[in-house]
């Protein structure tokens, strides 16, 4: 900071940059809320204004709920993300425990493979997985949405790093007390790793709630659609895109995440720093 000036130039500059960044990030959301609140005529008018002259949010919402079974899509989203997360935890915790605390031949090789797995983008394996599901006759079902994501290498990696920090004495104490190895995973490691599980849960839920690519590929039936597909549904209408209800629907489907974030803001930030440091 410059001592000659009482005005903290750097701090002002810093805030200016942060505000500019925030504006870029928030602009689409503000635009979404603005559009969702305008009647059709105002959306297509040439003049640009954020605050609608005529407030039409209720009408747009009503239309959105009428046109598409939004509640059903939200429910689908919940079913899919929760199933994915629960299965991911059931796979990742025992795997991470073995990689962090058990000594066996080839452990380092296995862990290297896990790291390698993180590098593979899901799109790269999409076609083989799609064919596999086709052979199994599981396309166009909840299983098709959930199964490919049950083994999360990122989850295994994250939990393994966290389990490394759990003292070995605690595991040994559990063994002396007569708890089995699987018992140790659920009774000792899971409670100790709640912050890491929460962080992983946030990532997993956000990623799969917002996933557009995979559901688009494997789904046909309308009643199985996940929230992002539901929004697309408005766009694909032959009657032309009705932006008002579309934006209203978009608001509805991001609402659960925003509300969850507001409730768990601290945990969310903890989770991100956790993954950043470890």
């Amino acid at each position: 900071m410059n001592n000659a000036h009482p005005i903290p130039v750097r701090a002002i500059l810093r805030h200016f940059l942060l505000i500019a960044g925030a504006a870029v990030m928030l602009a689409p959301f503000i635009w979404m809320i603005s559009t969702a609140s305008k009647p059709q005529t105002e959306i297509f008018s040439s003049e640009l204004h954020l605050i609608p002259h005529q407030f039409a949010l209720r009408d747009n919402l009503r239309e959105a709920f009428a046109k598409a079974n939004l509640l059903r899509f939200l429910l689908n989203g919940v079913i899919v993300t929760v199933s994915i997360f629960v299965l991911q935890v059931m796979v990742a915790l025992p795997a991470a425990y073995a990689l962090a605390k058990l000594r066996f031949l080839g452990r380092e090789t296995l862990f290297a493979l896990v790291l390698f797995g993180i590098l593979i983008p899901p799109q790269a394996t999409a076609i083989p997985v799609f064919l596999l599901l086709h052979e199994a006759g599981l396309l166009d079902s909840y299983a098709a949405l959930v199964l490919p994501f049950t083994i999360s290498v990122f989850g295994i990696f994250l939990m393994r790093q966290f389990f490394k920090t759990v003292p070995d004495d605690l595991v040994d104490a559990a063994r002396m007390d007569g708890i089995s190895e699987f018992g140790i995973v659920w009774q000792v490691m899971l409670p100790a790793a709640i912050p890491a599980v929460t962080a992983f849960g946030i990532f997993s839920v956000v990623a799969h709630w917002n996933d557009y690519f995979w559901p688009l590929i494997v789904l046909n039936s309308e009643q199985l659609r996940t929230p992002p597909l539901a929004v697309a549904h408005f766009r694909n209408n032959e009657a032309g895109t009705s932006y008002g209800p579309l934006m209203a629907a978009a608001m509805v489907i991001i609402a659960p995440l925003v509300i969850a974030f507001l409730f768990a803001q601290r945990r969310f930030i903890e989770g991100i720093t956790l993954t950043g440091i470890k």
Partner: peptide
């Protein structure tokens, strides 16, 4: 197995289960 040897061990770090109360810690074995 360790538990079947019927020995008890006290660790340097005490190794108490952090999520359990004192009562539950002692109750585990």
């Amino acid at each position: 197995r360790p538990s079947a040897r019927n020995l008890a061990m006290v660790f340097q770090s005490y190794a108490l289960y952090p999520h359990l109360s004192t009562f539950d810690n002692i109750a585990v074995p």
